[in-house]
């Protein structure tokens, strides 16, 4: 059923990772990504992997959830791996038949590229699994604050993002309900060719759009009647504050990046 979709869902918890300031987690994720792309071979990757593994352990997110988040990307990972395998030239020839030759360097690159994509997704999944959407947008808004100087509507963008996130489950539920209602009147969403299927979607999409617009209108009225007028002079009930653990976590991040750069220089 539709409501079983769990893409990037937040898993509530009370671990060190959950308690970190969202800004810390955002910055750390960026540092992690930079480190991941700086690492070239074994030692660098091992370090980045260790960092992620320890973070996952601390967060108590089940490995199964991370793996199920990686599942949709299998095809991309495979294609990247295969392309690298065949197109990387090197010195140590492994296999050669017809016009295809596979080098040891190709195998290495293929494995590392596939690893890189998986580690990238796993790291960002950990961010969304341990940070509520509201915290995430709050953190983003705070981090992007300097851009206000050049008239980027940071608050408005963050607000739009949190409203959009907030309404995803609502719209999924609504879709479910309208589908059931039309099915009860004999609508058939499954059978028929492409055109028949597209046509069958109209009884679903039209009420869905109408209700989305109605909801938007009602929300706007509700916000206005509570005197919402954008970010100017707006204060928060939950202030973001950097604690000692945040600075410690950032220090670990800087250390990670420094080591990975060192390893890159050394070529290990």
């Amino acid at each position: 059923m539709l409501r079983d979709i769990t893409l990037g869902q937040y898993y509530p918890g009370d671990t060190l990772i959950h308690r970190l300031d969202p800004r810390t987690k955002l910055v750390l994720t960026m540092v992690y990504i930079v480190a991941l792309f700086t690492a070239i071979v074994y030692a660098g990757y091992a370090l980045v992997f260790l960092f992620l593994a320890v973070s996952i352990l601390i967060s108590r997110i089940r490995l199964k959830s991370i793996l199920s988040g990686l599942k949709p990307l299998i095809v991309i990972v495979l294609i990247t791996g295969i392309l690298n395998l065949f197109y990387t030239k090197g010195e140590h020839l492994l296999v050669h038949f017809w016009r295809i030759s596979i080098y040891w360097e190709g195998v290495e690159t293929a494995v590392f590229m596939a690893l890189r994509i998986m580690l990238l997704i796993a790291g960002t999944l950990l961010l969304t699994y341990t940070t509520s959407p509201l915290q995430l947008t709050d953190g983003l808004e705070s981090l992007l604050n300097p851009l206000k100087k050049i008239h980027v509507p940071v608050h408005e963008l963050a607000m739009m993002m949190s409203i959009a996130l907030r309404f995803i489950p609502t719209l999924i539920e609504e879709t479910d309900k309208i589908m059931s209602a039309q099915r009860a009147r004999g609508a058939d969403f499954e059978t028929g060719g492409l055109i028949a299927k597209a046509k069958a979607l109209l009884p679903l999409l039209i009420p869905l759009f109408v209700s989305a617009f109605r909801r938007a209108d009602e929300l706007a009225t509700a916000m206005e009647s509570r005197c919402y007028h954008g970010g100017e002079g707006r204060t928060r009930m939950k202030q973001l504050r950097m604690a000692r653990r945040d600075w410690a976590a950032l220090a670990v991040g800087v250390l990670l990046l420094a080591l990975v750069i060192l390893f890159r220089r050394l070529g290990i």
């Binding site: 309208i178 209602a181 009420p207």
Partner: peptide, 12 residues
Amino acid sequence: GLLFQYPEYQLF
């Protein structure tokens, strides 16, 4: 025949 809650939202 099944009529859902707030059925007016299914009109299209």
